[in-house]
Write a protein that binds this DNA or RNA. Structure first.
Lengths: 152, 152
DNA sequence: GTTTCATGTAACTTTATATGTTACATGATG
DNA sequence: CATCATGTAACATATAAAGTTACATGAAAC
């Protein structure tokens, strides 16, 4: 399977939006991410349904942040995407009649469950505000380096 | 991407083999797993290279276990498959120039890394012998239930 | 030694899923 | 009413697993 980069993508969009006031058209956002406007609308649809962002049609329309970034975690964003599969691996068959398969599944399921739970927990620890702050730090660091270069 | 069931599949094969002396032809194993002999050979190739199983050509040939099941973990088997991707999600781009992307990646990488490490650790805790013992327990329980049904 | 059996492997097909694209309907603004 | 922007369906492309076919290689049986 191709690996899923929707979470990565939608976070990229949200962080861009958090850097300056909107609204932003799908086309603008698509250019910043080097992709297609429809892809933007697609990954943003779930966030709109949950009220994290708003979208307006017509002149001056586009996407706007509509939530407190310090109250939305990466896990919330993940859920807004529809909670796609986290692990690349899966059991051959779920609920098999074969006892061999049952024994294998029991062992793997335990490991899979733990890993998924940890991943979700980690995503739940990071808010969009924390990400945005980190980004500002990185932007500041770059500016500082530029200044240092001019005045060594 | 389609989700990867090779680990599940190869464990199924190994457990079948542990239940009775071999050798087993790819065709026999394929029938037990409702798949194709070539698929069996494919997923077994890595295990053969690492010496976990042996394969013989010609009459009376086939696959044989060639390791101490109590010393091979599910993690070892996973590595024998070539260590395929564990997570279904990934960053849009690795090592991006864009600072936004860097901030997103930094946050996700941390979560991804922790989840992968835990999954590998869990797989490393389970040996093939443990799986095989569990299977025997299940087989015993079924037999016991059958007897109970006859003599309630 | 020839036949039969089994693996080894390349090449191709199929399937599932994410991503990219086109087309057009819907609604808001000027 | 013309323009802009989203909403969405439909279709195309890309990637990777799984399934299939074909054939070469080597071992055992006869």
């Amino acid at each position: 399977m191709k690996r899923d980069s929707r979470l990565s993508g939608v976070l990229h969009v949200l962080l861009h939006m958090a850097q300056q006031p909107g609204p932003f058209t799908s086309e603008t956002l698509a250019k910043a991410m080097d992709t297609n406007p429809v892809v933007i609308r697609r990954i943003m649809a779930g966030l709109r349904d949950l009220g994290y962002v708003r979208s307006e049609k017509g002149h001056g329309g586009g996407w706007t942040l509509a939530c407190d970034l310090s109250r939305v975690t990466l896990r919330d964003v993940y859920k807004a995407l529809g909670s796609p599969a986290l692990l690349a691996m899966a059991n051959r068959t779920e609920a098999p009649g074969c006892l061999v398969e049952q024994a294998v599944n029991a062992a793997l399921d335990q490991a899979f469950y733990d890993a998924e739970a940890l991943l979700l927990a980690r995503l739940g620890e990071v808010t969009l505000a924390m990400l945005s702050d980190d980004l500002r730090r990185r932007l500041g660091a770059r500016k500082h380096r530029a200044i240092s270069a001019h005045h060594p």
